[in-house]
């Protein structure tokens, strides 16, 4: 597998949220607006790249029996760094993500990549893999949050689209911002992916 494939496989083909169904908690909890989704995606990507790099560097020194606790400590270190950085420089984002920033520690994507990739491959490849997976996670979060923000408030990235088009009376469905909307959006997106897969399989089978 060359480096470019390694980088882009996380975007769609092995997208951590939409295909592998990992990291679902943040994917549903913070995706009430694109801003939050993007912030969460970037924070997780930063943690993912940092921890994958360090773990890949230290892979010869980590005894395999106690590797999981060591991975968790390394990941938690980066999460603490990101947490304090956000609190200092982007306090509004830190406030709206709240509990879910320390919970990046238990995001299965990060531990999963550490176990499956970074602890075996070279430093450069691990960084590329982490960056690709992080971007894939961000894509999924932005996709979910775009659907929810649009259906819930009629806005995208805070721009009220309907008002701009001259439709004044539009009111979003508040349910999409609340928890049920998260589950519903996720279910429909996964359903769409499955429909697409079935359709492709039928097309190639017919030929």
């Amino acid at each position: 597998m060359n480096k470019l494939q390694n980088f882009t496989k996380g975007f769609f083909k092995e997208n951590p949220v939409l295909i592998l169904a990992l990291g679902l908690c943040p994917a549903l909890a913070v995706t009430t607006s694109i801003e939050n989704g993007l912030g969460m995606g970037m924070a997780s990507t930063a943690v993912l790249i940092g921890s994958s790099t360090i773990i890949s560097m230290l892979k010869k020194f980590i005894p395999s029996n106690i590797r999981i606790p060591i991975f968790i400590v390394i990941i938690a270190t980066f999460v603490t760094i990101i947490d304090l950085t956000l609190q200092a420089f982007i306090p509004s984002l830190s406030e709206s993500l709240g509990l879910f920033i320390p919970l990046i520690v238990v995001n299965c994507i990060i531990l999963g990549r550490a176990e499956a990739f970074a602890s075996k491959k070279s430093v450069l490849n691990s960084m590329i893999d982490a960056a690709g997976m992080g971007i894939g996670f961000t894509i999924a979060l932005v996709l979910i949050s775009a659907v929810r923000e649009f259906a819930g408030t009629g806005a995208l990235l805070g721009f009220p689209l309907f008002q701009l088009m001259g439709i004044e009376g539009f009111k979003g469905s508040i349910m999409m911002i609340l928890p049920p909307g998260g589950f519903l959006t996720m279910g429909l997106i996964l359903g769409f992916m499955q429909w697409n897969k079935i359709r492709k399989a039928k097309n190639t089978g017919g030929k």
Binding site: P179, P180, F183, L184, G187, L188, L190, G191, Q194, I198
Partner: peptide, 22 residues
């Protein structure tokens, strides 16, 4: 429906339970 089988329908059912809990 075939495309909703498995995980998607689980999420949609979860959404309906969440409405009740709302």
């Amino acid at each position: 429906p075939e495309s909703l089988k498995g995980t998607p329908i689980t999420f949609i059912s979860a959404s309906l339970i969440a409405v009740a809990f709302l």
